[in-house]
Amino acid sequence: MERFCAGDSQAFDALFARHAGAVRGFLRRLTQSEAAADDLTQLTFLSLVRARGRFLAGARFKPWLYAIAANAAKDHRRRGAHETLPGDDALPVQVADAAPVRDLGLEKRVREALEQLPEAQREAILLHRFQGLSFAEIAEQAGVTESAVKVRAHRGYERLRELLGDLAGELS
């Protein structure tokens, strides 16, 4: 990060290679749109370059990067660019041979359930479950206390359990 702040483009390339795919996945889940995820990934890394002077030495990079991504997504949503959930016909029907088998019905139900959560809970769960951030890192990203994040995650998971009750029953 220090080399990147000093303008080293190779350091930026390394950061991009390491995090871009995961950030795009997070934004894809947050916005439910491939196009929006692409635009916001671009915007996230552009913001990273523009605001790198604001990164505090010794701070953790990953929560900061996801804070930028989440802010970009919020701004996108606030400006009315949020797209509605795609219907069944919008789900991918052809998957490459090498790709794992996808349960599209499950994915759709989970997506709809996540969409019903308040933004703060959804963000906490996406970062925790899919991006592998700890509650402490999510707290740093959201600028709140760790216990507040635990409460958000707990309430979010509890609500998801209600919404996906039958699926949870099948798994247990």
């Binding site: 349960d103 994915e107 998971y157 998801l160 699926l167 798994l171």
Partner: peptide, 23 residues
């Protein structure tokens, strides 16, 4: 209940990876 929901989310496959060139 949280663990049950956590496990359900674990069944969801990762989004189809974007080709490196596109990224």
């Amino acid at each position: 209940p949280a663990l049950q929901a956590f496990d359900v989310l674990g069944q969801v496959a990762e989004p189809t990876p974007v080709p490196v060139a596109a990224l």
